[in-house]
Simulated assay, not measured.
Amino acid sequence: MGSLFSSAITLRNSVRISDDEFTQLRDFIYDKCGIFVDAKRKYLFESRFSKRLAELGLSSFSDYIKFLKHDIRRNSEMNVLFELVTTNETSFYRDTRQLDAFRDNVLRETLEKRRSEGKLDLHIWSAGCSSGEEPYTLSILLHEMLGPEIARWRIRITAVDLSPQVIERARRGVYREYAFKTTPDQARDRYFTPHEEGWKIRPELGRLISFQTMNLNDPLALKRVPRSHIVFCRNVIIYFDEAMKKRVAKAFYDNLLPGGYLMLGHSETLHKISSAFQPVYLPGSIAYRKEE
């Protein structure tokens, strides 16, 4: 997941939202997906949702809240709602300093440990994968580190996101120039092929990845994710309140195999959220390790 409401679109005919309507809609969103929207972002509801209200023929946020709760189309509207409350701002090789530290320490250690145990298998969970740039980057790193040896490994990257639309874009694997703003040219040339709409990921990269829609506020869905050696959840928990952060951190801890690692975004921390993990300080980054 990228930035929540990262930019407001000013609409001439935006529908005003009252304090009570904002609270009701905010609480509804929190209940459904765990994302908490601060009152300071109230005006962003008006800019983001006004067009949708017009499309549905609704004149107020009260009508939209009733629609979400009672209309026969309310289940399909959840997908639209989730798309509106998240803006998927991401790119390949995002935060290269963290990725370098991850590759040279966490990933290298994990692969060497699996080899030493005679178990050539690896599972990574990319939680909040947006339109696929993160899990594809992880696949590239694995191909570069293992080379031809990768054919002997059983590797699975489970990539999940709240929005069905971005998951579909991730599965398609076609990206425009903007997605490569932090990508080395040689990586793009090697792992992508030219496409009429930009660049398409090579099939061998996608074969390691299973994309699926998932709500991190759904305990049953979280339990269905295979046990992981590494969990990536970058730039996601900053949109949760303390209670939701604690629930998600516990879910990641329970999912990780002993000795496994959790990677958060560079501005995120488990300080005051969970003491179950052991912080591991890397150059320009922190990894959180589950004790063996």
Rank of each mutant, 00 (worst) to 15 (best):
M1S: 11
G2P: 01
G2W: 02
F5A: 04
A8L: 12
I9R: 11
I9D: 02
L11C: 05
R12H: 10
N13P: 00
N13G: 15
S14G: 11
S14M: 14
V15F: 10
V15I: 15
R16K: 15
R16D: 13
D20L: 15
E21A: 12
L25G: 00
D27K: 10
D27F: 05
Y30K: 13
K32D: 07
K32S: 06
C33L: 08
V37F: 07
A39H: 09
K40G: 13
S47D: 08
F49M: 00
S50C: 05
K51D: 01
R52W: 07
L53E: 04
D63H: 11
Y64R: 11
Y64G: 12
R73A: 13
S76V: 05
L81E: 02
L81R: 03
V85C: 01
T86I: 01
N88R: 03
F92L: 04
R94V: 01
R97N: 00
Q98E: 07
F102C: 03
N105F: 14
V106C: 11
V106H: 08
V106S: 07
R108W: 11
E109P: 01
L111E: 02
R114E: 12
S116G: 06
L120I: 06
L120F: 14
D121L: 06
D121K: 15
S126N: 01
S126G: 09
A127C: 13
G132P: 00
G132A: 05
P135F: 03
Y136C: 05
S139G: 13
H143N: 12
M145S: 13
L146C: 10
G147M: 02
G147Q: 06
W153N: 00
I155G: 09
R156G: 10
I157M: 09
D161Q: 02
S163R: 00
S163A: 07
Q165D: 05
Q165G: 00
Q165S: 02
E168A: 11
A170M: 02
R172C: 01
R172Y: 03
V174S: 06
R176L: 06
F180C: 07
T183Y: 06
P184G: 12
P184M: 13
P184A: 09
R190L: 15
G198N: 10
R202Y: 04
R202H: 08
E204G: 05
E204S: 10
E204A: 12
L205H: 03
R207S: 10
F211Q: 04
M214F: 09
N215Y: 11
N217K: 10
D218M: 06
A221R: 10
K223A: 14
P226T: 08
N235Q: 04
I238F: 07
I238R: 00
K246L: 08
K246H: 08
R247D: 06
R247Q: 15
V248Q: 05
K250C: 10
D254P: 09
P258S: 11
G260P: 13
G260K: 13
S267Q: 08
E268A: 09
E268N: 10
T269A: 12
T269V: 07
H271D: 09
I273D: 07
I273S: 06
S275Y: 12
A276I: 04
A276Q: 14
F277Y: 15
Q278K: 15
V280K: 11
S285R: 02
S285I: 00
A287W: 15
Y288V: 08
K290N: 03
E291A: 14
